[in-house]
Design a protein around this nucleic acid. Structure first.
Length: 214
DNA sequence: ATCCCGAGGG
DNA sequence: CCCTCTGGAT
Protein backbone atom coordinates (compact mmCIF):
# COMPACT_ATOMS: atom_id res chain seq x y z
CA UNK A 1 0.00 0.00 0.00
CA UNK A 2 2.86 2.39 0.84
CA UNK A 3 4.48 1.66 -2.51
CA UNK A 4 1.22 2.30 -4.32
CA UNK A 5 0.75 5.68 -2.70
CA UNK A 6 4.34 6.73 -3.40
CA UNK A 7 3.89 5.77 -7.06
CA UNK A 8 0.71 7.81 -7.29
CA UNK A 9 2.33 10.78 -5.56
CA UNK A 10 5.07 10.82 -8.16
CA UNK A 11 2.53 10.57 -10.96
CA UNK A 12 0.17 13.28 -9.70
CA UNK A 13 2.25 15.80 -7.72
CA UNK A 14 -0.45 18.46 -8.05
CA UNK A 15 -3.55 16.37 -7.42
CA UNK A 16 -6.45 18.45 -6.18
CA UNK A 17 -10.21 18.69 -6.33
CA UNK A 18 -11.36 19.03 -9.93
CA UNK A 19 -14.75 20.48 -9.13
CA UNK A 20 -14.86 24.19 -10.01
CA UNK A 21 -15.80 26.43 -7.06
CA UNK A 22 -14.94 29.77 -5.48
CA UNK A 23 -16.59 29.51 -2.07
CA UNK A 24 -17.41 26.75 0.44
CA UNK A 25 -21.05 27.13 -0.59
CA UNK A 26 -20.20 26.54 -4.24
CA UNK A 27 -18.10 23.51 -3.36
CA UNK A 28 -20.93 22.07 -1.26
CA UNK A 29 -23.40 22.52 -4.13
CA UNK A 30 -20.99 21.11 -6.74
CA UNK A 31 -20.25 18.10 -4.57
CA UNK A 32 -23.93 17.30 -4.09
CA UNK A 33 -24.35 17.51 -7.86
CA UNK A 34 -21.46 15.12 -8.43
CA UNK A 35 -23.43 12.11 -7.15
CA UNK A 36 -23.34 9.44 -9.87
CA UNK A 37 -22.08 12.01 -12.35
CA UNK A 38 -18.62 12.98 -13.56
CA UNK A 39 -16.89 16.14 -12.36
CA UNK A 40 -16.68 17.31 -15.99
CA UNK A 41 -20.47 17.40 -16.34
CA UNK A 42 -20.87 19.12 -12.97
CA UNK A 43 -18.48 21.86 -14.10
CA UNK A 44 -20.62 22.34 -17.20
CA UNK A 45 -23.72 23.40 -15.24
CA UNK A 46 -22.32 25.15 -12.18
CA UNK A 47 -21.34 28.48 -13.83
CA UNK A 48 -24.97 29.19 -14.77
CA UNK A 49 -26.24 27.80 -11.46
CA UNK A 50 -23.86 29.89 -9.35
CA UNK A 51 -24.54 32.94 -11.52
CA UNK A 52 -28.24 32.64 -10.78
CA UNK A 53 -27.95 31.47 -7.15
CA UNK A 54 -24.62 32.70 -5.74
CA UNK A 55 -25.45 32.18 -2.04
CA UNK A 56 -27.52 29.98 0.26
CA UNK A 57 -30.00 32.84 0.61
CA UNK A 58 -30.60 32.87 -3.14
CA UNK A 59 -31.00 29.09 -3.36
CA UNK A 60 -33.28 28.91 -0.32
CA UNK A 61 -35.99 30.88 -2.12
CA UNK A 62 -35.41 29.39 -5.56
CA UNK A 63 -38.13 28.03 -7.81
CA UNK A 64 -37.51 24.27 -7.91
CA UNK A 65 -38.42 24.12 -11.60
CA UNK A 66 -35.71 26.61 -12.46
CA UNK A 67 -33.11 24.68 -10.47
CA UNK A 68 -34.21 21.42 -12.09
CA UNK A 69 -33.68 22.85 -15.56
CA UNK A 70 -30.22 24.16 -14.66
CA UNK A 71 -28.97 20.87 -13.24
CA UNK A 72 -30.98 18.40 -15.34
CA UNK A 73 -27.96 17.06 -17.22
CA UNK A 74 -26.25 15.89 -14.02
CA UNK A 75 -28.92 13.25 -13.40
CA UNK A 76 -31.05 12.57 -10.31
CA UNK A 77 -32.13 16.16 -10.77
CA UNK A 78 -35.38 15.96 -8.79
CA UNK A 79 -33.67 14.52 -5.70
CA UNK A 80 -30.77 16.89 -6.08
CA UNK A 81 -33.02 19.94 -6.43
CA UNK A 82 -35.01 19.00 -3.33
CA UNK A 83 -31.77 18.46 -1.40
CA UNK A 84 -30.11 21.65 -2.65
CA UNK A 85 -33.03 23.89 -1.69
CA UNK A 86 -33.53 22.09 1.62
CA UNK A 87 -29.82 22.34 2.30
CA UNK A 88 -29.80 26.07 1.52
CA UNK A 89 -32.78 26.66 3.83
CA UNK A 90 -31.05 24.79 6.64
CA UNK A 91 -27.93 26.91 6.12
CA UNK A 92 -29.99 30.10 6.31
CA UNK A 93 -31.96 28.98 9.37
CA UNK A 94 -29.15 27.41 11.39
CA UNK A 95 -25.89 28.95 10.14
CA UNK A 96 -26.66 32.48 8.91
CA UNK A 97 -26.34 31.22 5.32
CA UNK A 98 -22.76 30.07 5.81
CA UNK A 99 -21.39 26.55 5.33
CA UNK A 100 -20.46 25.01 8.70
CA UNK A 101 -16.95 23.59 9.11
CA UNK A 102 -17.92 20.80 11.49
CA UNK A 103 -18.64 17.23 10.39
CA UNK A 104 -21.78 16.83 12.52
CA UNK A 105 -23.28 20.09 11.31
CA UNK A 106 -22.64 19.18 7.66
CA UNK A 107 -23.96 15.65 7.91
CA UNK A 108 -27.44 16.67 9.08
CA UNK A 109 -27.93 18.88 6.02
CA UNK A 110 -30.26 17.36 3.39
CA UNK A 111 -28.29 15.58 0.68
CA UNK A 112 -24.99 15.74 2.56
CA UNK A 113 -23.58 12.31 3.36
CA UNK A 114 -20.19 11.07 4.46
CA UNK A 115 -18.43 11.62 1.14
CA UNK A 116 -19.84 15.08 0.45
CA UNK A 117 -18.99 16.24 3.96
CA UNK A 118 -15.43 14.96 3.56
CA UNK A 119 -14.88 16.76 0.27
CA UNK A 120 -16.10 20.06 1.74
CA UNK A 121 -14.11 19.72 4.97
CA UNK A 122 -10.95 18.70 3.13
CA UNK A 123 -11.01 21.20 0.30
CA UNK A 124 -12.84 24.23 1.68
CA UNK A 125 -11.64 24.10 5.27
CA UNK A 126 -8.33 22.26 5.05
CA UNK A 127 -9.45 19.62 7.51
CA UNK A 128 -8.54 15.95 7.23
CA UNK A 129 -11.57 14.25 8.74
CA UNK A 130 -11.23 11.08 6.72
CA UNK A 131 -10.31 9.40 3.45
CA UNK A 132 -13.20 8.94 1.07
CA UNK A 133 -12.70 6.79 -1.91
CA UNK A 134 -14.86 6.90 -5.04
CA UNK A 135 -16.20 4.14 -7.23
CA UNK A 136 -12.96 4.17 -9.25
CA UNK A 137 -11.31 2.37 -6.39
CA UNK A 138 -13.24 -0.76 -7.20
CA UNK A 139 -10.97 -0.94 -10.25
CA UNK A 140 -7.89 -0.77 -8.05
CA UNK A 141 -9.29 -3.51 -5.90
CA UNK A 142 -6.58 -6.01 -6.74
CA UNK A 143 -3.93 -3.53 -5.65
CA UNK A 144 -5.70 -2.33 -2.55
CA UNK A 145 -6.75 -5.77 -1.42
CA UNK A 146 -10.42 -5.14 -2.04
CA UNK A 147 -12.42 -8.33 -1.85
CA UNK A 148 -15.94 -9.28 -0.89
CA UNK A 149 -14.81 -9.36 2.71
CA UNK A 150 -12.59 -6.32 2.32
CA UNK A 151 -15.06 -3.60 1.40
CA UNK A 152 -14.32 -0.02 0.30
CA UNK A 153 -15.08 1.06 3.86
CA UNK A 154 -12.39 -1.30 5.11
CA UNK A 155 -9.97 0.02 2.48
CA UNK A 156 -10.59 3.56 3.67
CA UNK A 157 -9.88 2.52 7.25
CA UNK A 158 -6.67 0.78 6.19
CA UNK A 159 -5.56 3.86 4.27
CA UNK A 160 -6.24 6.11 7.25
CA UNK A 161 -4.13 3.83 9.43
CA UNK A 162 -1.22 3.87 6.95
CA UNK A 163 -1.23 7.50 5.85
CA UNK A 164 -0.47 10.49 8.08
CA UNK A 165 -3.63 12.44 8.80
CA UNK A 166 -2.19 15.51 7.09
CA UNK A 167 -2.28 13.60 3.77
CA UNK A 168 -5.82 12.22 3.96
CA UNK A 169 -7.37 14.71 1.56
CA UNK A 170 -4.41 14.37 -0.81
CA UNK A 171 -4.72 10.58 -0.86
CA UNK A 172 -8.40 10.82 -1.76
CA UNK A 173 -7.46 12.97 -4.75
CA UNK A 174 -4.58 10.73 -5.79
CA UNK A 175 -6.89 7.75 -6.07
CA UNK A 176 -9.56 9.78 -7.86
CA UNK A 177 -7.08 11.27 -10.35
CA UNK A 178 -5.68 7.86 -11.14
CA UNK A 179 -9.18 6.57 -11.74
CA UNK A 180 -10.02 9.48 -14.02
CA UNK A 181 -6.80 9.57 -16.04
CA UNK A 182 -5.35 6.08 -16.11
CA UNK A 183 -7.46 3.35 -14.52
CA UNK A 184 -10.47 4.32 -16.65
CA UNK A 185 -13.58 2.16 -16.57
CA UNK A 186 -13.66 -0.39 -19.37
CA UNK A 187 -10.58 1.13 -21.04
CA UNK A 188 -7.71 1.28 -18.55
CA UNK A 189 -4.48 2.78 -19.91
CA UNK A 190 -2.31 0.13 -18.31
CA UNK A 191 0.59 0.88 -20.66
CA UNK A 192 0.91 4.34 -19.08
CA UNK A 193 0.26 3.26 -15.50
CA UNK A 194 3.03 3.68 -12.92
CA UNK A 195 1.54 0.78 -11.00
CA UNK A 196 1.73 -1.51 -14.04
CA UNK A 197 4.47 -3.73 -12.62
CA UNK A 198 2.76 -4.39 -9.30
CA UNK A 199 -0.90 -4.44 -10.34
CA UNK A 200 -2.27 -8.00 -10.53
CA UNK A 201 -4.94 -6.87 -13.02
CA UNK A 202 -2.70 -4.97 -15.43
CA UNK A 203 -2.45 -5.94 -19.09
CA UNK A 204 1.09 -6.13 -20.37
CA UNK A 205 -0.09 -5.37 -23.91
CA UNK A 206 -2.38 -2.53 -25.00
CA UNK A 207 -5.77 -3.29 -23.48
CA UNK A 208 -8.99 -3.35 -25.47
CA UNK A 209 -11.36 -4.00 -22.62
CA UNK A 210 -11.44 -3.22 -18.94
CA UNK A 211 -9.78 -5.37 -16.36
CA UNK A 212 -12.21 -7.18 -14.15
CA UNK A 213 -11.15 -7.65 -10.57
CA UNK A 214 -13.96 -9.52 -8.92
C1' DA B 1 -25.10 -2.49 -21.64
C1' DT B 2 -22.29 -0.19 -18.13
C1' DC B 3 -20.46 3.42 -15.63
C1' DC B 4 -20.14 8.01 -13.14
C1' DC B 5 -15.88 11.79 -6.72
C1' DG B 6 -23.82 9.43 -3.58
C1' DA B 7 -27.64 9.75 -0.32
C1' DG B 8 -31.76 8.17 1.77
C1' DG B 9 -34.84 4.82 2.88
C1' DG B 10 -36.57 -0.04 3.82
C1' DC C 1 -27.81 -5.79 3.31
C1' DC C 2 -31.08 -4.17 -0.46
C1' DC C 3 -33.41 -0.71 -3.52
C1' DT C 4 -34.46 3.79 -5.94
C1' DC C 5 -33.40 8.02 -8.10
C1' DT C 6 -31.59 10.16 -13.58
C1' DG C 7 -29.04 11.68 -17.71
C1' DG C 8 -25.14 11.44 -20.58
C1' DA C 9 -20.79 9.29 -22.20
C1' DT C 10 -18.60 5.29 -23.93
Amino acid sequence: MKRILNGLKREYPTAKCELAYRTPFELLVATILSAQCTDVRVNLVTPALFGRFPTAHDLASADPREVEELIRSTGFFRNKTRNLIGMARALVEDHDGEVPSEMEALRVLPGVGRKTANVVLGNAFGKNEGITVDTHVARLSGLLGLTTHNTPDKIEQDLMRLVPRADWTLVSHLLIWHGRRVCIARRPRCAHCVLRTICPSAFSAAPRTAARHR
